[in-house]
Simulated scan of single mutants.
Amino acid sequence: MSYEVELKAHVDDPITLKHDIEQQPGIGEVCCEEKDDIYYALAGQEPLFRLRMERFGPSFQNLSGNVRFTRKYKSLKDGIEVNEEVEFLSSSDQAEYAHAFFLSLGYEVYIRKTKRGYSYDWAFDETLSPLHIELVEIASLGWFLEMEFVLETAERVPYARTRLLEVLSLLGVPQERIEERYYMHLLKDFS
């Protein structure tokens, strides 16, 4: 099990921000990505887990991927998420079977989310895992900057939170742009 320390912020000018990210010293190569998520819940309840079809590549014309199954134990403080997660991968041809299996167990589709954009890894702090950055468009919600550290233990969570806010400032995104709600709740408000 790992701990994700992450934030997401609304972005008004993704082209400029993409340029600014790519100008940072030590930033990794850009990777194009598409992610289609289905969140499952029992009737009338909050979602329990997610099925994600994810595709990555050097361009949007050359993507390949897999299916990721994720169960998160979530917490949120001041717009920064700290999530414990349990997950595993399968080949992309298993998505349809997994979906049918979950529906057969009585789960319902709570919400679907489509994300398309760019991702980077940045060795921003030697004492933490590489910072994962995504600049993505969420269908019907707009553009977001997502950043996360993945930690093995919870002891470094406060320090990782501080470093996320420093990077946000470095990239010129005001803290007021942090979105404190989960995507699934934002999407549910629009459905």
Rank of each mutant, 00 (worst) to 15 (best):
N66G: 12
E81N: 06
H99N: 08
G57F: 02
Q45V: 00
A98D: 11
H99S: 02
F101P: 13
G79E: 00
E46V: 01
F56Q: 09
P47F: 02
I38F: 01
A98F: 10
R52G: 08
E54N: 04
R71K: 06
S59W: 03
Y39R: 07
A95L: 12
P58K: 06
Q61V: 11
T70V: 09
S91L: 12
S59C: 12
R52Y: 01
Y39Q: 00
Y73I: 12
L42P: 05
G79I: 00
N66V: 07
I38Q: 08
S91E: 15
R55N: 15
L89I: 07
S59K: 04
D78S: 10
Y73Q: 12
E96W: 03
Y73S: 08
Q61D: 14
A100P: 15
N83Y: 04
E96A: 11
S91T: 13
D78E: 12
A95H: 08
N62K: 12
Q94K: 14
Y40P: 14
I80F: 08
A100L: 13
A98S: 02
R55P: 15
S64D: 13
D93S: 00
A95W: 08
A43M: 02
A41F: 02
S92P: 02
T70D: 14
E96F: 01
E84V: 12
L51W: 01
Q94S: 11
E84S: 09
T70F: 05
I38N: 10
L76S: 14
F69M: 15
N83C: 07
L42D: 08
Y97C: 05
R52S: 01
F101H: 06
A43L: 07
E96D: 13
Y39W: 07
F49I: 06
A95D: 11
Q45C: 08
K74G: 09
N62L: 04
L76V: 11
A98R: 02
Q94P: 01
L42W: 11
D93P: 12
T70G: 01
E87H: 13
F69Y: 15
Q61E: 15
E85F: 10
A98I: 13
Q45W: 00
R55H: 15
V67E: 12
K72S: 10
E81H: 04
E85G: 11
L48V: 09
E96M: 03
K77P: 00
E84P: 03
V82H: 06
K74S: 04
L63V: 09
V86T: 15
S64F: 09
N83E: 14
S59T: 15
N83G: 01
I38A: 11
G79M: 03
R71V: 02
S64R: 12
L42T: 08
S92R: 03
F60G: 02
L42I: 07
L63I: 10
V86D: 15
L51M: 12
M53V: 10
F49S: 14
M53C: 04
V67Q: 06
N83M: 02
